[in-house]
Design a protein around this nucleic acid. Structure first.
Lengths: 319, 319
DNA sequence: ATAATCTGTGAAACGCGTTTCAGAGCAAGC
DNA sequence: GCTTGCTCTGAAACGCGTTTCACAGATTAT
């Protein structure tokens, strides 16, 4: 393999000078510069990235920890991160976890090993206590409103749910259910908190059996309709934290002859294009922006103040 | 920073022995092994991944070139690649191109620089001629049926479209249109070829204005309906290469009172969950498997025979 | 005229783990 | 008793680019 020393030899200069030329450092006279460039061309020299990274102590690569790759939510976050990263010459390394704790910890280990310069945790399975010992002095960004000092960016789910609940109340609903991706995780907990707080503030009761968990994909929406039908006391409205699930609900309701919103109102989250297709009233979630801000938090070394993103309601026809 | 030499010093052994212990090589006496492990613990030693990669000449990382991250198609491919990669201890680096040639070439350059061990090209903008000079002796996998020798895995789009056309013919359709993601690119060309061949075989005319291009997202389906309505002579059926677009078409048709399939039949591709929700007849595309096979092609050094994946028709209610 | 800068350059150290090679010591095979 | 053949170990080379430091020579400032 041809390396920088061979170039130096052929060009009749020192390796430092070669390095200077290759990195556009000043203080190299034109003549030597040309000789170096000629040697590079002649020997077909290509830098070894790993040598650069070892030497520099950084990799211009950021790790993204996420559970799944085939959900629009994570695809959109990735777009946001990648777009912003590209602007600053950074690349993305994917750490897909399937919410397996070990896979998640592996990502942190990679960070410790300097395989990536930082980590963006879009969603996690491990407790903060567990993670703390792994992130001493490392650049980690969380996409959630976690307690304690950390770089974090998050969508104000609490406020969104409260606003949504008030909106449903104003439409006369008192019996409201909730469809969640999962119950653990800060973002979900924030939504649940908003849900309970709003219900309490309005003097309405919350029924545990009106909270549907593990609503992730389109088909889960269909299942929710089945469960809803089987209930003796049914909520008249559902807050659904994913447009995919809402779309599944609305389409299945259509098949079953359940009239939306008269019999069942749906207030959704994401404002994904699919909500437009199904005329689903949905909170616009700045997911791409979430990704962009996450990268910025990583990039700006001492940017420690949390970034809070707000949602806005897009009224359509399911409430 | 604590490195392998410090460990050696503290443990009173040579660096080779430390390396042996750290890599579970045989021929290290238990006593020294314990001393090394103790030193590792005491100094809180963590390997530097970049040093390993430089030394080994490989990174256990594969680059994935893709235009977009927020399309289900690419999310699914990624899932397939990532799943298979994980099994073999590989990670993924994302090279999002937006179909920009320079961004694409950058990925090849990274490969030359040994930043990744190989590249999976899920879709590309550069010509093969351009790329050829960049892949001399490098491990590159293409997800398309390109001409010439190369690692490749692809879905048999030609056959799928031909089968689809015959299916439509059998239902009495003679005036058939086509919705494409794009016109360039091998996969699209294969579909177009199947489209023309089938029409010709059936003795039907193909109308250029029945071919709709740049149909990518849900909303593009809506636009197609508008364009379709504006046609003086309308096709009675459309072959649509994405369920997202089909869903947009079907939903918009519903709003406009266009009866599917009586007035407009839709034969779609992907068999994405959304096609189930909309009852769209769709070809099942083994996209995840495409990703898995792509990784295998990369991983098995001399696996040069192309992998061809077949589709299967899922009949629902839009034809 | 002298001090203070700036330009240009190379040797050497640095970042750090892996691997080869030579050799010592010891047990099994003939 | 002598030859193979293991087991175990460390020195040194290897992979390779960046950066610091010392210094020579050329300017500019005082």
């Amino acid at each position: 393999m041809t390396n920088i020393r061979k170039i130096a030899q052929l060009a009749g200069v020192s390796v430092s000078t070669v390095s200077r030329v290759l990195n556009d450092h000043p203080y190299v006279i034109e003549e030597k510069r040309q000789k170096v460039l000629a040697a590079v061309k002649e020997l077909n020299y290509i830098k070894n990235a790993n040598a650069v990274y070892l030497s520099k102590g950084k990799t211009y690569c950021i790790g993204v920890v996420l559970p799944f790759l085939n959900l629009p939510y994570f695809g959109e976050i990735l777009e946001g991160i990648a777009g912003e990263a590209l602007k600053h010459g950074y690349h993305l390394k994917i750490f897909q976890t399937d919410y397996e704790k070990d896979a998640e910890l592996d990502a942190f280990h990679r960070l410790q090993m300097k395989e990536v310069d930082g980590l963006i945790i879009t969603s996690r399975a491990n407790s903060l206590d567990t993670l703390h010992s792994f992130m001493e002095g490392l650049n980690v960004v969380f996409c959630e409103n976690l307690h304690g000092v950390a770089k974090k960016v998050f969508i104000n789910h609490y406020e969104a749910v409260r606003t949504g609940m008030d909106y449903l109340h104003s439409k006369g609903h008192t019996d409201i259910g909730l469809c969640l991706h999962r119950t653990f995780g800060t973002n979900s907990e924030e939504r649940v908190r908003g849900f309970y707080d709003a219900a309490e503030a309005a003097g309405n009761e919350v029924r545990e059996d009106w909270i549907f968990n593990e609503c992730i994909h389109l088909k889960d929406g269909r299942d929710v309709v089945g469960q809803w039908e089987a209930l003796k006391d049914k909520p008249s409205a559902l807050i659904v934290t994913s447009d995919q699930v809402s779309a599944g609900i609305v389409s299945q309701a259509g098949r079953k002859g359940i009239v939306v919103p008269d019999e069942l109102a749906i207030l959704s989250f994401d404002n994904h294009p699919i909500s437009d297709v199904f005329d689903i009233t949905s909170f616009d979630m700045p997911i791409r922006q979430l990704g962009e801000e996450a990268f910025r938090l990583f990039f700006e070394e001492d940017h420690l103040s949390p970034v809070i993103l707000e949602t806005s309601l897009h009224e359509r026809k399911t409430v």
